[in-house]
């Protein structure tokens, strides 16, 4: 029995290796696609200590966007972001961002949004996080990057946006990876969905990552490379390849859970609150 098990395990391992090989091969349809695997770690937060996110890496974005001149964060989002532990806390080795249905500062929902702006920024490399998503109509969790705005001298979408993972809570098997830039922003972003077959993103943790270098961004879920976006991708959408804004600046990390908004629609009576996005870790690797 034991011997059989060993053989079976060995064979299963072999199969796994073959499967991964198959995936890499199938996602490499032509010679122009660059597949990289960066290993030199430059930032790591495992959320192991304290009750709040480590201030060496993270700060909060608060409110509903009015202070920034974009009420509803430009998307008609319904939540008010706070820095209370009810919305953002570190616990059990996790970062937990919790969206709640409650009356607060004139809004019907609260949630959290943290970012590494000015604290950790990097050009190129691998950005990844291991996350279990919340679920339900109208929930909009995201792990994304924004380009440095040169102290406000430049504005979105010219600064660029790399969405490593966005999800509509009513689509528990799907996530989307996108880029936004001049001529390809908002509803015209360049993106691709990834469908987790026979599983869902709210029942277990998955690793969402990009590997980003000169003229390419590769999108991963777990070990699966499911998309590559390049300047040629812009041209396919009739956008000038010169509008590629991902070769000239550092980007910072944002983690948040929005409620409602143009992208996801509004919560329904069936949406269960509170809803928590659990982040096991965030890791960044340099491109060298």
């Amino acid at each position: 029995m034991n011997n059989n098990k060993k053989v079976i395990q060995s064979l299963a391992l072999l199969t796994l290796v073959i499967a991964i090989g198959g995936i890499v091969a199938s996602c490499n349809p032509d010679d122009t696609q660059v597949v990289t695997n960066f290993t030199n770690i430059t930032m790591e937060d495992n959320f192991e200590a304290g009750e709040t996110p480590n201030p060496a890496f993270w700060s909060y974005e608060l409110g509903n966007g009015e202070a920034q001149g974009i009420p509803g964060w430009g998307n008609n989002e319904l939540q008010f972001y706070t820095n209370r532990t009810e919305n953002v806390k570190v616990e059990d080795g996790m970062l937990k961002i919790t969206a709640r249905q409650e009356s607060f500062e004139g809004f019907g929902y609260t949630s959290g949004r943290i970012l590494t702006k000015g604290k950790f920024q990097q050009k190129y490399g691998r950005f990844e996080a291991r996350i279990r998503l919340p679920w339900g109509q109208g929930l909009w969790p995201a792990f994304w990057l924004l380009g440095d705005d040169n102290d406000g001298a430049e504005i979105w979408p010219n600064i660029g946006e790399i969405d490593i993972m966005e999800n509509r809570g009513q689509e528990p098997t799907l996530i989307t990876g996108s880029v936004h830039g001049p001529g390809y922003s908002g509803g015209d972003s360049i993106n691709k969905d990834y469908d987790l077959v026979n599983d869902r993103f709210d029942t277990d943790f998955h690793i969402f990552g990009v590997e980003w270098g000169p003229n390419y961004i590769n999108y991963y879920v777990d070990d699966v490379l499911y998309n590559q976006i390049t300047p040629e991708s812009l041209e396919e959408e009739d956008v000038d390849a010169a509008n590629w804004v991902f070769n000239d600046r550092e980007f910072y990390i944002i983690l948040n859970v929005a409620v409602g908004g143009n992208y996801v629609g509004f919560p329904s009576a069936e949406t269960v609150f509170p809803q928590t996005m659990e982040v096991d870790y965030v890791r960044v690797y340099s491109a060298d």
Binding site: V7, I8, Q9, S10, L11, A12, L14, T15, I18, A19, G22
Partner: peptide
Amino acid sequence: MKKLSFKNHIALPLLGLMCVFAT
């Protein structure tokens, strides 16, 4: 394992499939 030999690469995934069922 050493006793196994494969004539071509197609056999590997097939065997893999069988192994998944076995486990």
